[in-house]
Design a protein around this nucleic acid. Sequence first.
DNA 1: GACTGTGAAGCCATTCACAGCT
DNA 2: AGCTGTGAATGGCTTCACAGTC
Lengths: 213, 213
Amino acid sequence: MKTLRVPEATVTRLSIYSRYLEQLDRNGVTTVSSGEIAEGVGVSPAQVRKDLAYFGEFGTRGVGYNVKDLLRYTKKILGLDQQWPLVLVGAGNLGYALCTYRGFNSRGFKIVGVFDNDLAKIGKKIGELEVLPMEKMPEVIREHGARIGIIAVPPQAAQEVADYMVKNGLEAILNFAPVALNLPAGIEVRNVDLSVKLEILTFNLGFKSAQRL
Amino acid sequence: MKTLRVPEATVTRLSIYSRYLEQLDRNGVTTVSSGEIAEGVGVSPAQVRKDLAYFGEFGTRGVGYNVKDLLRYTKKILGLDQQWPLVLVGAGNLGYALCTYRGFNSRGFKIVGVFDNDLAKIGKKIGELEVLPMEKMPEVIREHGARIGIIAVPPQAAQEVADYMVKNGLEAILNFAPVALNLPAGIEVRNVDLSVKLEILTFNLGFKSAQRL
DNA sequence: GACTGTGAAGCCATTCACAGCT
DNA sequence: AGCTGTGAATGGCTTCACAGTC
């Protein structure tokens, strides 16, 4: 088993390259160099080549990469050569936005169930989906073979929701609640924090004004 | 000027510590150790101490940190000892969710203007805010002294919106569109990508099933 | 001439381990 | 005894620079 560990930063960028390649492909570009990809996504050309090298040799020296091929490879590597059914908990504004987010569909993700424990929200429609009570989750997971869950509930409720997801067999969780989830080893969790980056900005702006600690 | 460069990862975690301290403070906790913070946010105790050490000595040996004090320090460092007016472009579902997101308000951010170029959206109300046409942005920025903008528009429109923001004096941009923005040096930009983390999950799930490249 | 693939070097961040306080 | 603060060691990611290929 030759599986040399791939840095998470590399996987992150691969996802970004892949999306950029999709754009190039739509625009009819057939060949691209590491330098052009680098330019397009804001990294160094060496970085692009090094990242791709973790997975094989996809280019032609002196020429570059075939856009369609590299796009297919990157999607394959990321596991996007299949549709991924997702379940989402939290039918608030954020949950609604995520349900209708184009960026998920275009990459092969499909939300197959939206859940909430708020009676005022249950039964509402989000696109073609109806908001269901939490108890329906096991059934939906089984029916669609979902492995990934999205948490879009207030922070206090997030841990409980995560536990429920794991109990019902989900193996990976994308968490939009600003809390650290405590879950068994083997469950993949990633957090998307909507405000942390904002605080990086205020931190940096602070230095522009007064260069003092 | 003793300003040794602070790693961005440290600033990111500082933001997370700060929010965790807020939670502790609400719960009436008065003292906390680096180990407890570490446990609460999912990093190592040494990391917590090292991160804090970039900014000073906030603890007491043998005891730990005073929660209220450390909370105040972290907020100060992050520039959160003041209110930050924000302008947001894109009154779609994501823009709507961001406008109503509690996590911004609770940290001193306040969206003071929402803009869109879609006539169907202009005039609509989001909470107490009315969606305004883009042309109103300069006025709103001036009136509130906004320095930061949020982009929540489709990817094709993001660059144009960013240019417009910069033209009107904004110094920092939080970009939710999945594209790399090209902006003059000196403008702070951070991207929040809603789907990249999801692709990290599918990548990792791919290895659990078949341990093959 | 152009561009990829890659070992080596450089750099940065995290962890270790312990001295220093309380 | 308990916990912070920190230099030193480690580990990992990024950049460099060039050989290899078209």
